[in-house]
Amino acid sequence: MTTAKIGAIGENDVMLIFKAVGVEVFPVENKQEASQILSKLAKEGYAVIFITESVALSIDADIKKYASKMLPSVVVVPGLKKRNNYALEKLRQSIIKAVGADVMKEK
């Protein structure tokens, strides 16, 4: 058992609320910054990384790298911008990959 840190990446406004609960926050403004910080956090052994939806969408390729690893667990949370259902889409993709059919469609 190891103790690991928790991080959050996203827009400054959303980061404040994470800061209040004691998560280490990394406000970012553009794509490069976000992907740099993500790889840095993964390297430093953060176990859970929260990312806001709009940021996650821009660094999709970087997030995919960590999908098949046990750690870190990247959790996408909705931000203040327009919703894009990033997380559900990811879930659907992994199901299609595994089952070969979209079993989530019916609902």
Partner: peptide, 9 residues
Amino acid sequence: PTKKMSVDV
């Protein structure tokens, strides 16, 4: 923040 949070894996 006074709250500290970490996670045991």
